[in-house]
Design a binder for these strands. Structure first.
Lengths: 220, 220
DNA sequence: CATCGGTTGGCACTGAGTGACAGGATACTG
DNA sequence: CAGTATCCTGTCACTCAGTGCCAACCGATG
């Protein structure tokens, strides 16, 4: 039923536009009563976004069935959404065409993506101690979701573009790398491993000796 | 008027709760008609968020009146929001108390923050070439907004906590640093400054000599 | 058959949001 | 000053989202 409603709704909206398609219209087209429609979708806009509820479950699932660097686990979990989009490519493309021009729908979509973000953030902050950890978890989650969002958007607007999963994997790597070397660290910036020394040399065309020299000069 | 409405609305909502406060109630309390109320706030929830429209302008302003590393400019611009919160601390605290338990209001707030994000993203991607630049702009904007959001949230829940501007500055630094050394770069990862050499030493208790030694060994 | 939990439909109601129109205030012009 | 254009407000009427309530129905189970 759920998916019947979704299909009928999309057809009607494609034909008449979203604002001109009432809950009554959709229910009628699907052969149910208006009242029942609102039992399936307490918010009218969500007829078009029922898939996200499923993806959300899938993401949550994947968070628990993998053990690795937390950011990578989170990223891998998010791929469930890409998988969903790929499987349902036809629907998802048509949807995006009707969502884009309607602010109420765009807003609703943003809020769905927000769900993923809070899910990831709570996962990422689970094994982080202290306030800073929770903050960084939110930041990383936001970055991951922005990446996912961009990947999906690009996939939708250029059907024959880059492979979305590959692009996402690439972005995920970049994000994970970024977070690895700075204050945006999982286990807090330093105090827990005070004796550790890390050295990063970027884009160097210099020899080790010359670098050592630079360090000498920079020391204070 | 605008601010009168805001004040009356907050009082009523504090007293009866949001769902039980109709647009009619608010308009009446402010001495205007319901119709006029909707002229000020096409969406009822926005009575409580009128300040964001102003902040948004301030942020946009600041984006143009500073020249520096783009991420830092963006961060500096966002501080306008913190300034606003600090100036209007009383209102903003009472608001947060009524917003937190009401999902419709939380959602609306999320969408306001989304506005900042798209604003920053479009600024950040302005001088970025190519697809990658636009993607990274979105990611960075999302990270900055998550940071701002966390800062404000923490400020609201613990009145006597850390200085929000200081905390934000710190997070901004972290984010800017993260982006500086990896693929998440503004002007592309490296090729434009191939001769630059950067060295970062983290949490070192070692001397410069010992570090130079490490580099030697790591060299391949 | 009886009945019991879950789903549906019908009905009525509240309240958000909007279009149309009619004053009323204000400012500008000669 | 009178005349007029402009903007703001209130009134009325309407559509439609969303919800509570109750009655009917359906399938399973004893």
């Amino acid at each position: 039923m759920n998916s019947v409603l979704r299909a009928r709704a999309l057809e009607l909206i494609e034909a008449r536009g979203f604002e001109a398609t009432t809950a009554e219209d959709i229910s009628q087209a699907a052969g149910i009563s208006r009242r029942t429609f609102f039992r399936y979708f307490p918010i009218r806009e969500d007829v078009l976004f029922s898939d996200h509820a499923a993806y959300l479950l899938a993401v949550e699932q994947r968070l628990t069935t993998r053990h690795d660097e937390p950011i990578l686990v989170a990223g891998h979990a998010l791929e469930a959404v890409i998988d969903g989009y790929l499987l349902d490519a036809d629907f998802v493309r048509r949807r995006s065409a009707v969502v884009r021009p309607v602010s109420a729908l765009r807003d609703r979509e943003v809020l769905w993506f927000r769900e993923y973000q809070t899910l990831l953030a709570s996962y990422l902050s689970a094994d982080e101690r202290g306030t800073r950890g929770a903050i960084f978890a939110q930041i990383v989650a936001a970055a991951l979701l922005a990446a996912l969002n961009q990947v999906l958007e690009r996939y939708l607007e250029t059907p024959d573009g880059e492979d979305p999963k590959a692009l996402f994997a690439e972005l995920l790597d970049d994000i994970a790398d970024s977070m690895a070397d700075t204050g945006l660290r999982g286990r807090g910036p330093g105090p827990e491993h005070p004796e550790r020394t890390g050295v990063v040399v970027i884009n160097s065309t210099l020899s080790a000796d010359e670098i050592a020299d630079l360090i000498d000069k920079a020391e204070r």
